[in-house]
Amino acid sequence: MNIFRLAGDMTHLASVLVLLLKIHTIKSCAGISLKTQELYALVFASRYLDIFTHYVSFYNTVMKLIFLGSAFSIVWYIRRHKLVRRSYDKDHDTFRHYFIVLPCLILALLIHEKFTFRVVMWTFSLYLEAVAILPQLVLLQRTRNIDNLTGQYVFLLGAYRALYILNWVYRYFTEPHYVHWITWISGLIQTLLYADFFYYYFQSWKNNVKLELPA
């Protein structure tokens, strides 16, 4: 494992911790899109189908369990916890799941490396992860008041994707036969979706003003 991959995973882990901190400690999910969180739960559920049958390393198994567990508990918190659900901004979080899930499923059935259930589901999870942030970005744009933790959560998620690209570049030059078009293109699209957010995030940081996305 190279430093970019490790840094990417740690950034991903940090994003989840920031979100759990907000939800568990402050008992608030204001500005957080339940739709995006449900899509992530679906992403991990479909990607880690082989978690108990395909062993890679202790590190991988533990991380997979963390991402699965945190994704589903975040969804549970927002839907079921009596305090947390009260802060959920339902009226602005209006993105429809099937606009995202259905095209990804169709694309995975059409474009994959091998037509088996596991590989198609794995490919579906890649396509879905690429666009799962969209409801969250739309919600941010509609929210006049983006609090610090929400801004940091989205920033860490974007940073994680950018570090994964560096990881692929590194692996491409250091490992033989390392070419994964499906992973790379969907990962690149996923990272590009954050470009706009990054721009305003750094602007607000540089000018020391509150983060706000233009409508």
């Binding site: 395909h54 890679v56 390393s57 088996t116 994964y164 036969h177 992973t183």
Partner: peptide, 10 residues
């Protein structure tokens, strides 16, 4: 055989 997917990544 395993497809050439990035199975060692998360």
């Amino acid at each position: 055989a395993e497809p050439s997917v990035v199975k060692d990544e998360l």
